[in-house]
Amino acid sequence: MIRLVRIEWLKLRTMRTGFGLLATSAALTALFASLEASRAGNGKNGVAPLFTASGLGTVTTVTGWSMIFAAVLGVIVSSGEFRHYTATLTYLGTPDRRRVLVAKGMAAAGAGVIFGLVSALIATGVGLIFVAGHGYHVALGSGTLVAHIAGAVVGAALFGAMGVGIGSLLRSQLAGVIGVFVWALVIESIIGGLFTSVRPYLPYTAATTLAGIKLGGAAFGPAHGVSGGSPLPFAAAAALVLGVAAVLHVITVRTTLRRDVT
């Protein structure tokens, strides 16, 4: 299995798309963290001042993009095998397709670790720069900041693995990528805004709460400003996202994985 993961990791390292997605994720994180920091405390958008733990935390946890883009990378590495007909070579080398799927999931999770770490470091850096610029005291302890960074890393890693399941299931890169964005930014936002009791159990929302993001904080739609509900405990949220990824992989093994490679 280690060799298979090394193969998938080498594939990731030798495709430009992964670096492009990482750069996009980092740029969006920097942009949105800067926007939140510049608007903090002005009383219009509800972001508390940066000298408060809540205000600073809003900025340092702008890491949702890393999870979305990690999932997109997972979709691309798995569905890309069919788009570019490389699945033929992959399965000739490793006829056991389930092992290939698991190795891809592990490699994408590894990439997700980098996505989450880069994004969390950028968001934290932006928050601390703005705090220093205003001459404020840093209201969040180092333990909290590290916990948020670790949460972003775990969330993005799990979303990377989940993306592999989605891409393998759909086999269509376009449908998979659009599906990830629509689910995370539209569907969860609508459901989360309408049913606050369900919101903590939605996979993208659960992953973002791992990183310390407030419920609805990563949503673009109606759920963004809606309060209510409590985030799941860290272990429960991680188990939920891992469970969704595992279910997607199992469905893939039982359906599309056995399909003919033509």
């Binding site: 594939k11 030798t14 495709m15 430009r16 798309t17 890309g80 570019h84 007909y85 490389t86 033929t88 070579l89």
Partner: peptide, 10 residues
């Protein structure tokens, strides 16, 4: 099996 079974960016 097919000449194009390679990722074009690699």
């Amino acid at each position: 099996l097919e000449a194009s079974s390679a990722y074009p960016g690699r």
